[in-house]
């Protein structure tokens, strides 16, 4: 058994520790005896979406997002088809913003993939904080770090979680990220998955089931992962 992870434009969208998410997925597959292949795509590469099981779209600076956005127009249709057919996507930070219709920053507007009918606008200040979410997917909270100038408005879509501590999508509606089919978009960057093994396994399980039918994912010893998760939950939700 093998999963193929497509890392889109890592040379542009790799703002801060996104590599941690790749390392985490690969290791958690290998520890269970499942092969993992990571394909990195440059802006000029042709992408065969049918070969991919998980797509990671990372964060980039505003300038880098502009470069990516021009390229995205060319893959927009294939990307939307992949999502509608149940393809797994993890989109972080800038990548999350690019899932929507547009990101308006001042006078400039970056056109997104339009995978989901949401949009982002640049706020006055950056929202920078440790963050804790309660997702409907799991009893265990999701923890991470957010750092974004954009405010994302997701309308009636389901958020990834409710903000217990931190800012979230727009610092107003207590929602963070988005859940749509098998797509997760979130502002929690960098090592989101290592400290949230439940979320990582959710992505892996979904991708495995899609490719191979129902697959049994053996449990791992997550003592260290859970300790790091609990520490953040405790420090940022119980002190307030």
């Amino acid at each position: 058994m093998k999963l193929t992870i497509g890392h889109l434009y890592p040379e542009l969208l790799n703002l801060y520790g996104d590599r941690g998410n790749i390392i985490c997925m690969v290791q958690r597959l290998r520890w269970r005896g499942i092969d993992a292949e990571v394909k990195e795509f440059d802006l000029n590469d042709k992408i065969d979406f049918s070969k991919l099981d998980i797509i990671l779209l990372g964060g980039g600076s505003d300038r880098e997002q502009l470069l990516v956005c021009n390229r995205l127009k060319r893959i927009k249709k294939d990307f939307i088809d992949y999502v509608e057919q149940g393809g797994v996507v993890l989109a972080i930070c800038g990548g999350y913003q690019l899932l929507g219709n547009y990101y308006k920053m001042g006078d400039e507007t970056i056109e997104g993939l339009g995978v989901v009918n949401i949009h982002t606008e640049r706020g006055d200040s950056r929202l920078i904080s440790n963050i804790v979410l309660q997702s409907e997917l799991f009893p265990l909270p999701i923890v991470g770090f957010e750092n974004h100038g954009g405010r994302t408005f997701i309308g009636d879509y389901q958020p990834l979680g409710k903000v217990l501590s931190g800012h979230g999508n727009n610092n107003k509606d207590k929602g963070e990220g988005i859940l749509y089919k098998n797509v997760i978009g979130t502002y929690l960057h960098g090592p989101l998955l290592p400290k949230n093994p439940h979320l990582c396994d959710y992505l892996l399980q979904t991708a495995l089931n899609r490719r191979f039918g129902k697959v049994d994912l053996p449990e791992l010893d997550d003592k260290d992962e859970l300790a790091a998760n609990h520490y953040i939950v405790k420090r940022f939700t119980q002190s307030e």
Partner: peptide, 9 residues
Amino acid sequence: GKDISWLWD
């Protein structure tokens, strides 16, 4: 820096 995600880089 409150953000230590750089450890993964």
